[in-house]
């Protein structure tokens, strides 16, 4: 079990956190103009990189706040955490 650094509470055990998947997936500005393919991509397709991945986590059993983390998916090691809005960590490049 690894410790995850909650930007609000400090280091806590992994079991206190919930995973939220890829960060920085914006809701479409005007959903009605999207065709089926664009809509499918927004709903279903997320980056799946082998390496650094910018993602959302929630400190579900602690402060219950969401934050952004950069994690290496090869080692599962956290490289960086940011509270949402503090600054914008680089998002995973879109395909």
């Amino acid at each position: 079990m690894q410790l995850i650094l909650c930007p609000h509470c400090g280091p806590r055990e992994e079991t206190e956190f919930c995973y939220g998947g890829e960060a920085g997936v914006p809701y479409p500005d005007d959903p009605s103009v999207l065709d089926d393919e664009q809509w499918a991509r927004f709903v279903f397709v997320r980056a799946n990189p082998k390496g650094a991945f910018t993602e959302r986590w929630s400190h579900a059993a602690g402060c219950r706040r969401w934050f952004t983390a950069v994690r290496d998916t090869r080692t599962h090691r956290f490289l960086d955490v940011e509270s949402i809005g503090a600054s914008q960590p680089p998002t995973t490049p879109r395909r």
């Binding site: 079990m1 690894q2 992994e14 079991t15 919930c18 995973y19 998947g21 799946n48 082998k50 991945f53 993602e55 994690r71 998916t73 090869r74 080692t75 599962h76």
Partner: peptide, 13 residues
């Protein structure tokens, strides 16, 4: 395990 991972190992919990 809940998160995306290529590490071929998972969490103990």
């Amino acid at each position: 395990d809940s998160y995306v991972g290529y590490g071929q190992r998972g969490a103990f919990h």
